[in-house]
Design a protein around this nucleic acid. Structure first.
Lengths: 236, 236
DNA sequence: TACCAGCGTTACAGATTCGTAAAGATTTCG
DNA sequence: CGAAATCTTTACGAATCTGTAACGCTGGTA
């Protein structure tokens, strides 16, 4: 069942929406400000986020940007809520990546319908929380990877790294890009962290580790059709 | 994910701009003076540079000239920042090749809009990071070359050399010019470095190596329609 | 033919970049 | 708090890249 994250600072509204959605069979997570929202979203990988615009700590716009910046939540649909019918905010909201937009007061029924509609759309197209590439099958909810029915569990960093390597598919990813996406670094640090994690990832992927190709003085390239040797030694 | 290089000696301003742009989904690199700026720019090939005019080490004007001198950064858009609304500086800035200009204090929103505008403009027109000539297809971001769907990977030096040979198309390039563009040499030294790299490049291009023609006592000419023999032996 | 300037080719040492293991730092959780 | 898991840093070796020197080849000239 789909998981929905509701972010609003007013408890009344939060629980009202939550009750309604829970009643329709969704799993509901909640957060009361932008900071919390990001944290919960990263932890639970919701299929959709309902995000209030006016909040303490970190408002909806900022939270939306944050969500869009993290590879785990980059494509999660977001519905924005606002108290006013302010066109400025509406535009800003859509600019930073919200998928839909509603002005308070709104009927719960309408919200529910929009959620249905968006989930139908994104589930059909992207699979939202699942990514499939060749024999690889990533499940964002459980940070799990299957390679043709063999379970592999990764840490969150490893998972983010793999995800960042895979999407968009077929393009080499620069070291700096990866550091930016996975770790949030902005400067050219001369750290070996990336290399270390690449190594662990390759090890955990076993013979499919070869799918992560290195492009010297650029970065790495995920190649789903890499030559796969028939050995199985990955017990370091 | 466009990459933007921010160059300013004041850390506060630098990080303020960086945060804003990172929040909008750009990848951000930073440098605190002109020398560093050139170094980082060469290393990361940003899509745009925000350059402060007043800096230690090497000011904005000098840095701008440096950027325009290197083939990798020659066409990278530059937005200049200055503390005063000094018309002199504005003129100088535009003369040395800046694309836009803003006076401090400025709103981050305006900066963001100008960046959007410039990126839209340059991305549409120049294709910015891709060069196509006959069967050749160079991707500046990833240092990748394709010759009619066959991948060829070059080192960064080889890539710069090939790029310098190709652009502008159809003109013979003098040895001195190439040394200047690729290596930054200013004097016509008696080095054989250029010859060595030409050889390596020809070898990697396989049968298309013939596209690099020697113009005796002048330099080299890239000829996309060079006679291409049907052999494939380049494994010396 | 002999000579010479310009270019091609090869080999090699220093510089970069990457992979790897191990130790230290941090976070998580009972 | 303490232990385990995870992440980051450090150090060093391996692989690759790069500039230079040495020498061979070619075409032009007298």
């Amino acid at each position: 069942m789909e998981k929905i994250l509701i972010v609003d600072d007013e408890e009344d509204i939060r629980t009202m929406i939550a009750d309604k959605l829970a009643g329709e069979g969704y799993r509901v997570e909640m957060a009361s400000n932008g900071l919390e929202a990001l944290k919960v979203a990263k932890a639970t990988s919701p299929d959709l986020v309902v995000l209030d615009l006016m909040m303490p700590e970190r408002d909806g716009i900022a939270a939306c940007k944050d969500l869009r910046a993290d590879p785990l939540t980059q494509k999660t649909p977001i519905i924005m809520l606002t108290a006013l019918d302010a066109t400025d905010q509406k535009i800003t909201g859509l600019e930073v990546g919200a998928d839909d937009y509603m002005t308070k007061p709104f009927s719960l029924k309408e919200l529910s319908l929009r959620i249905q509609s968006i989930l139908r759309r994104t589930t059909d197209i992207a699979g939202s929380s699942d990514v499939k590439v060749g024999p690889f099958h990533l499940d964002k909810n459980n940070l799990r990877v299957k390679i043709s029915d063999e379970d592999i569990d990764l840490t969150s960093t490893e998972f983010k790294l793999l995800l960042s390597l895979i999407e968009p598919l077929g393009e080499p990813k620069e070291r700096g890009d990866l550091l930016q996406k996975v770790w949030g670094y902005s400067n050219l640090s001369q750290t070996r962290t990336l290399d270390t994690h690449i190594k662990r990832l390759r090890a955990k992927l076993g013979k499919y580790g070869a799918c992560i190709e290195t492009v010297r003085s650029v970065g790495y390239l995920f190649n789903e059709n890499a030559p796969v040797a028939d050995d199985e030694n990955s017990t370091d």
